[in-house]
Write a protein that binds this DNA or RNA. Structure first.
Lengths: 150, 150
DNA sequence: TCATATATGTGTTATAAGCACATATATGGA
DNA sequence: TCCATATATGTGCTTATAACACATATATGA
């Protein structure tokens, strides 16, 4: 038993980061290290880099993302990922899945309020919206498509 | 690749049902078959019964739930589960975890709206609340605590 | 007699999250 | 010059577990 008694501890649910990775790459073309930081900024606490890098290779193997090396610039070479059109399609499917999670979570807190007499613990879904910034302090990147999507 | 192209398909995220199971048992004392139906009613589509039964035994092994056989009544014997005080404690921890999921999901749909030009696919979190009924058509059960919690 | 609903289990496999370990470049400080 | 740190990407291995297939038993109604 670990952490605060939660079995599995701080282990993330299986397949949980996948839709976030695809969505981040829909919006920006980034290399792994920056994707990692973006995920952390979106509420994932300290994503394991091995998990992310392997997930990216898996998504590339499926044809949902593509990558090319970016040498030039300072520091080690970066493998920059972009989403493919196949990736955009599965992202739509994933959005439905995440929407399903959202409904389940709303149901959870409804019942939670019933069971505990309306004493929600944290943000409890008061409609908050997290307010994801436009890539905080990052590169800026520019990209190719992205903006024109609409 | 399966289902509608979503890799991992209809596989649930790891440890996803655990907090729901604990919460349902906080509210009602039920046997597995009814817990299954309640989970389905809360948005889980067709939870695998083997997964649930093993999860219940695991939670019992951890001391978070307890069970006793209920013979008498028609049909096969039922193993009726109730949450323990240790289970109520971890449920509080799980609620924080679920709240974290909720923040991540809100962040997902924020970015989704940015990336796709404000075209959310399904319910998209408009504040909806799922409206979990009081155990739909089930037994009624009675239980012991539950109501007095407040 | 047979199908179905109720109710609970076990055997096995595939997958992937997390940890430890490894490598390389560039920068800034002692 | 050496060393620590940030950046950046990877592999090896273990372990947990979700899903599937398979199995069992009781009661009811056709």
């Amino acid at each position: 038993m670990d952490e605060f008694g939660v079995p599995g501890g701080r282990r993330l649910p299986k397949n949980f980061i996948t839709p976030w990775v695809l969505l981040v790459l829909k919006q920006w073309s980034l290399h792994g290290y920056l994707i990692l930081q973006q995920l952390n900024r979106m509420g994932f606490s300290d994503v394991d880099h091995a998990t992310l890098y392997r997930e990216l290779r898996r998504l590339e193997g499926q044809g949902f993302v593509a990558s090319e090396w970016e040498t030039g610039g300072s520091g080690p070479a970066r493998r920059v990922y972009r989403i493919t059109s196949a990736g955009e399609e599965v992202l739509l499917g994933w959005a439905e899945v995440v929407s399903g999670y959202q409904r389940m979570i709303n149901g959870f807190f409804d019942l939670y309020a019933q069971a505990f007499g309306f004493a929600l613990p944290a943000d409890g879904g008061e409609g908050g919206r997290s307010g994801v910034p436009d890539l905080g302090d990052g590169e800026g990147d520019g990209d190719g498509e992205g903006e024109g999507a609409h």
